[in-house]
Write a protein that binds this DNA or RNA. Structure first.
Length: 551
DNA sequence: CGTACAGGTCTA
DNA sequence: TATCTAGACCTGTACG
């Protein structure tokens, strides 16, 4: 397949350097930046992979011009994967501007306007970096897996930009009605809404604290203790355990205050424009390979405000999520036949009960969460011996990951994403990590070592789960494109992705085909990661008018 | 007066 | 007897 490396030449020209999959260069052309979108649109007719320093620096402008690309190679994201992967000979990846690629950050909501001469990306040579990456991949152990990871990561970069471009349909009028019903009318100048004022008066009376500000944890804690309540913190969960006439009003205040602060009128003003909530998704933003987000708290949109996410007239949302993704991924990556058998049922935890591994569904859930998060005590910890007997390969895999982390070793996901090197173990001379703290006791060191073991234990499962989800997303993106005609936002398109859940915005008459596509993409993701090994990934899928109506 | 951190709450 | 993974982001408060 042809590859075209895009290189900025000053503010108003772009160099196109053609090469093949080995990086051997063919010809070079220079075009004015103003016609780049037309050039890309024309070349998209044939198979081509666009190679660029960073998708967030190139793709938004193409999408604005109505151009969608099929494939890219994001040097920033690929660099980050290759730099950490234990499959890679790091010597092949090292060049004089490696530190610059290490530091390169995506363009996000916080700094949308980088001027050409201020952008650190302009100091980097994409052609040289591309060559190093191809050489590193070609020589890698497990080249096939690592190649799949890079393909999925690069496809995710395109999805992320397309989701920000399209935006999640959001009805400000529905959201405002919800706020007014719960909080009262929008008060002027950011003062407290009527409902909060009323609750505040009640709380101050109940705790005999006329100046109490419940938004100040310190003064709230002192007021509670002065009323004789035996509390050490002011979390809602703690307060729910208490018997006191002021508690219900306080809990209600905290809940509504949180709504106001996180998703109130200010949020609407900041993040909703022209009927769309536009946040920035950051592929690879979490070390495990999960996405992070930036702007509007897209990864924690409360269920409370989801009624305001409403599909356009004549359109629907297809909302799909995977049931128990991570235990299923663990069954597949450890090739644990017994756990895969439990995963054959729609409810994996019920499957574990049916197999006699645990007594109840609650035990199954607590035990699996404990196995993946590293609980050794309490409810979850008690399940571990039984699970280990019944599922030795699955439990053995996470246990080994934990032991490796405790020894300070790097662990990796199925496709080869590597865990960070623990502090104090970094080998780069310019990044010595934290020097050993002379004041740290043996107990502290032991606690840190076990905490790092819990992190690496979770890393292999959460990270491989993220790889499954990326493959699902990438395959779904291609299927959705083939279902319609026109630009991205005229066809069925992804508008939201959160670890194991997707939301597709689709013309109503295509909803049935989108549902089928979501299922087929999930089956394909399982095949890509686990081949013929029989582990199922059943989906909960809903066709709805509002996001709140799913699930 | 701006930055850093603590505490809290939402997400999977 | 037992709160254990990964994030974003708000306010209040301490600090330089």
């Amino acid at each position: 397949m042809d590859r075209v490396v895009l290189v900025r030449r000053g503010g108003d020209a772009v160099e196109l350097r053609e090469c093949d999959d080995d990086g051997a260069e063919d010809r070079v052309t220079v075009v004015p930046a103003a016609v780049l979108a037309d050039v890309v649109r024309e070349r998209e007719g044939a198979a081509v992979r666009w190679v660029w320093d960073d998708t967030t620096r190139w793709y938004p402008a193409l999408l604005e011009a109505g151009v969608r690309v099929e494939r890219c190679w994001d040097l920033r994201l690929s660099h980050a994967v290759l730099r950490r992967s234990p499959f890679v000979d790091q010597g092949l990846l090292t060049g004089e501007d490696t530190a610059g690629w290490d530091r390169l950050q995506p363009v996000t909501a916080a700094d949308p306007a980088l001027f050409p001469l201020d952008d650190p990306a302009d100091l980097l040579d994409p052609v040289a970096e591309h060559g190093r990456q191809l050489a590193a991949l070609a020589a890698a152990a497990e080249r096939g897996r690592l190649g799949l990871l890079l393909a999925a990561e690069n496809s995710g970069a395109l999805v992320a930009a397309e989701m920000t471009f399209a935006g999640l349909p959001w009805r400000a009028d529905v959201h405002e009605r919800l706020l007014t019903e719960l909080l009262g009318p929008r008060p002027p100048g950011g003062s407290r809404p009527a409902t909060l004022e009323r609750l505040l008066t009640e709380i101050r009376g109940a705790f005999a604290a006329p100046d109490l500000n419940p938004d100040s944890p310190g003064s709230l804690l002192r007021a509670l203790q002065a009323s004789g309540l035996p509390v050490g913190d002011t979390r809602s969960w703690t307060l729910e355990q208490l018997e006191h006439p002021g508690i219900p009003a306080l809990l209600e205040y905290k809940k509504l205050s949180r709504l106001l602060q996180a998703n109130g009128w200010n949020w609407l003003d900041s993040w909703v424009r022209e009927g769309r909530f536009r946040s920035y998704f950051l592929p690879g933003g979490v070390v495990t390979g999960r996405w992070a987000s930036n702007g509007g708290g897209a990864l924690s949109v409360p269920a409370q405000v989801r009624p305001a996410a409403v599909a356009d007239d004549g359109w629907r949302f297809v909302v799909a999520d995977v049931a128990q993704l991570e235990p299923r991924v663990l069954a597949g990556m450890s090739r644990d036949e017994a756990m895969a058998e439990a995963a054959r049922s729609t409810d994996l935890y019920a499957g574990m009960v049916a197999a006699g591994a645990v007594a109840t569904r609650a035990d199954a859930k607590a035990g699996m969460l404990g196995a993946m998060y590293g609980a050794t005590r309490g409810e979850s910890g008690r399940m571990m011996p039984g699970l280990t007997r019944r599922y030795p390969r699955a439990i053995g895999l996470v246990e080994e990951a934990a032991r490796a982390g405790e020894r300070g070793e790097v662990v990796h996901t199925l496709l080869g994403r590597g865990s960070p090197v623990p502090r104090g173990r970094a080998e780069q001379p310019d990044e010595p990590g934290e020097p050993p703290d002379a004041g740290e006791s043996a107990e502290d060191r032991d606690r840190h070592r076990r905490a790092w073991g819990r992190f690496t234990r979770n890393f292999v499962v959460q990270g491989t789960g993220a790889e499954w989800a990326l493959c699902w997303l990438a395959d779904l993106r291609n299927r959705l494109w083939r279902l319609g005609a026109g630009t991205v936002e005229e066809r069925p398109h992804l508008v939201f992705f959160l670890h194991d859940e997707v939301v597709v915005h689709t013309p109503e008459h295509l909803a049935g085909e989108v549902v089928a596509a979501v299922h087929r993409a999930a089956a394909e993701a399982g095949r890509l990661l686990f081949g013929a090994f029989p582990v199922d990934f059943p989906l909960d899928v809903a066709v709805v008018g509002s996001w709140a109506d799913a699930g």
